[in-house]
Amino acid sequence: MYSFDYERPSGVNEAVSAIGEDDKFLAGGQTLLPTLKLRLAQAGKLVDLGGIAELKGISVSGSEVSIGAMTRHVDVANSADVKSAIPALSYLASHIGDAQVRNRGTIGGSISNNDPAADYPAALVGLGATVHTNKRSLSAEDFFVDLFETALEEDELVTKVTFPIPEKAGYAKFPNPASRYALTGVFVAKTAQGVRVAVTGAGPCVFRQTDMEAALSSNFSADALSGIKTEASGLSADIHASADYRANLISVMAARAVKAAS
């Protein structure tokens, strides 16, 4: 690792004013630290968010679940409140990476990185979540812009994510057997505003599969999805899977997600 300066502020305002052009916020560090170690990235200063109490925690009101940016995957996975309000979200968090990664990694860090194969973007877009920052609130679809790109500005920090509680929701992923990242993951939710189907891992950025949404709106069952294909062009292809393979996985995972929905 190249050398860097380090600061550990205790409040959001302090953190934001500490960040300069070459600096990076450090959340759980499960992506940033490996990237720095490989010298794929360099930081003048790391501003560690680990000491900011106001960024941690989960609360559930009547209609939504609110999760602080520095809440770890393990805490979302084990939360009795999340399990009862949105079991699919707890299930998703419990399948990110491995146990040690879940003990450090955070929701704010994951979504701010916007890895194309990360799990959380599917839940945010699938549930129609709102991302709150120190400056504004924006819809998940406006937040995730492109490959490793979000709408965040340099001095903008995710503070929490709020998820409307759906009627039912399910998540299914085909994990890369080594990394457990989603080769393809599909999050399906039946909400008051309609059915939403969000796909991660298959393309450069999370996206909605609107043909499936339409089919599930009239009949929320795996059978309704039979015959619906996703166009392979524009999907990702790499050593792990071709675009055609990923396109097929979307259908398979969507059906599994609908069956698992509760």
């Binding site: 380090y6 550990r8 450090l26 560090g29 499960q30 630290l33 490996p34 170690k37 790391l46 560690d48 680990g50 393990v74 146990a99 040690q100 990664v101 003990n103 450090r104």
Partner: peptide, 18 residues
Amino acid sequence: TVHVDGDSVKSCTMLAVQ
């Protein structure tokens, strides 16, 4: 892997200052 405040973590993916 070591335990930090009781939880298993990969100590190659955490800074000493953290």
